[in-house]
């Protein structure tokens, strides 16, 4: 039963992945991504990680894909129409990636352990995840919060509006100011 379910979700996830890459319209890519994320949620359930499965549906399928769709709609004002320009990997890059993937598959086939021990009772519940998060994995959890702070600071620093002015800029500006050292304002 589990093997059959896994087979179905794996095929769906792979099909969705191909769809993300191959779809001509961005909206279709986003919807194919939704298929991938939902199939992975079923996979997590099969691994007895019920809380992670719920999070996968709520956070990824619920919030992040919606965000993608919104952005696509805002960027392509004509209801997400229009083919994307110049998508696709160079052939050599695609070949290298496929090679690496094949290598990883080979390694997996050679080294996989057939039987995993059954999960302990209570595994994958909210209590269990919470205990792990605030017990054994407390320091990585806190480091992740610092990482989010860095992301926010970076987004604000790089995203906020600048005063429009022909200011001296480092590196090689397009048009060097005529004569004289830098003006400090």
């Amino acid at each position: 039963m589990e093997a059959v379910l896994f087979g179905i979700t794996a095929v769906l996830a792979l099909a969705g992945g191909v769809g993300v890459v191959a779809a001509r319209q961005p909206v279709h890519s986003a919807l194919a991504l939704l298929l991938v994320l939902l199939s992975l949620a079923v996979d997590y359930l099969l691994l007895a990680a019920q809380f992670i499965a719920a999070l996968q549906v709520i956070v990824y399928a619920g919030a992040i894909v919606v965000l993608f769709v919104f952005i696509i709609m805002l960027l392509h004002t004509r209801s997400g129409e229009g083919p994307r320009a110049g998508a696709g990997l160079p052939r050599a890059g695609a070949g290298v990636l496929c090679g690496l993937f094949g290598l990883a598959l080979l390694a997996l086939a050679a080294g996989v352990r057939e039987t995993a021990p059954p999960p302990a009772p209570g595994f994958g519940t909210i209590q269990d995840v919470g205990r792990a998060l605030f017990g054994r994995y407390l320091l990585p959890f806190e480091a992740a919060s610092a990482l989010l702070l860095i992301g926010m600071v970076g987004a604000v620093a790089l995203g906020k509006r600048l005063r429009p002015a022909g200011d001296p800029s480092p590196g090689r500006p397009q048009a060097p100011p005529a004569g004289g050292p830098a003006r400090a304002r």
Binding site: G154, L158, L162, D167, S169, P170, G171, R172, P173, Q174
Partner: peptide, 10 residues
């Protein structure tokens, strides 16, 4: 972020 911090430089 630091690499891109000079906003006026392409």
């Amino acid at each position: 972020v630091l690499a891109a911090l000079a906003r006026r430089s392409r």
